[in-house]
Design a protein around this nucleic acid. Structure first.
Lengths: 141, 141
DNA sequence: CGGCATCCGATAGGATACTG
DNA sequence: CAGTATCCTATCGGATGCCG
């Protein structure tokens, strides 16, 4: 595909909204749909690519596509949160692990995830109340 | 795929992916693009609708559309994280504040946001290294 | 002012095929 | 196995206009 150097560099920052403060972008990466799961999973132990894919599928109930996993990992690697160790063997073997920075982020994310899990009952209850109030409201039409 | 016979219940609000574990959904709401900012902003003090909109625009560098703010607030309200207080006056006045549950979530989110802010230098440095390594790599052709 | 309904472009994200 | 490239759809999110 023969891209120029500037295009390649720009592609790495493709979702860079110029009007957003920079730290917001990192926060987006960390809290992104798959970023969260990757960080949590890697907090347990290093994973290989497909291993990570299956692990996420198992814990989140949904399989991440190769494309999105690749993209997520690259973003997190570029931000210095994930370390990529590619061994030059056939068949290829690539191990992903957290950096020190990544571990700090992952721990906070996991804390939040666990809190959410722990508080699910309250949330479900709130939802029920909300939905019932809405149903009663529209019934008064 | 993933779409089948459902929605007939009517009360099935929004896009609830049935294959995702429930707590993952709440996590998505909390860590969503505007959810994060709303929670952090409300942690300071209660806000009115437009006030919240402007406050987010100020801190994030980008204005939320009314639509997204409305949607975000409704989702968070339904999850029991945000309390909506609509006064029946003309012109309308609606105040949003955090519930106890919401405050717990917001505090964790703010911690994460502050960590990100604090670690931005490391991230930027990692990015530079990553981009330079990539540039050198593609130059080897 | 605080919404809701609608249209619309942008992008996130999935399925598949192909490569080293 | 670990990606890359391509295509395509679904969802996000903004702009506009209307209403209480």
């Amino acid at each position: 595909m023969a891209v120029s150097t500037e295009e390649a560099a720009g592609a790495a920052r493709k979702s860079a909204d110029p009007a957003l403060c920079p730290y917001r972008l990192v926060l987006e990466h960390v809290t992104s749909r798959w970023g969260v799961l990757v960080l949590i999973e890697l907090l347990d132990r290093p994973h290989r690519f497909s291993e990570l894919r299956r692990a996420i599928g198992r814990t989140s109930g949904r399989q991440v596509s190769e494309k999105m996993l690749t993209q997520t990992l690259q973003t997190l690697e570029r931000d210095g949160l994930v370390h990529r160790d590619a061994k030059p063997v056939i068949p290829p073997r690539v191990d992903y692990s957290l950096t020190g920075l990544g571990r700090e982020a992952a721990e906070q994310v996991r804390t939040l995830a666990r809190w959410t899990e722990h508080r699910m009952a309250d949330v479900e209850q709130a939802r029920q109340a909300y939905d019932e109030a809405r149903a009663a409201h529209s019934a008064r039409a």
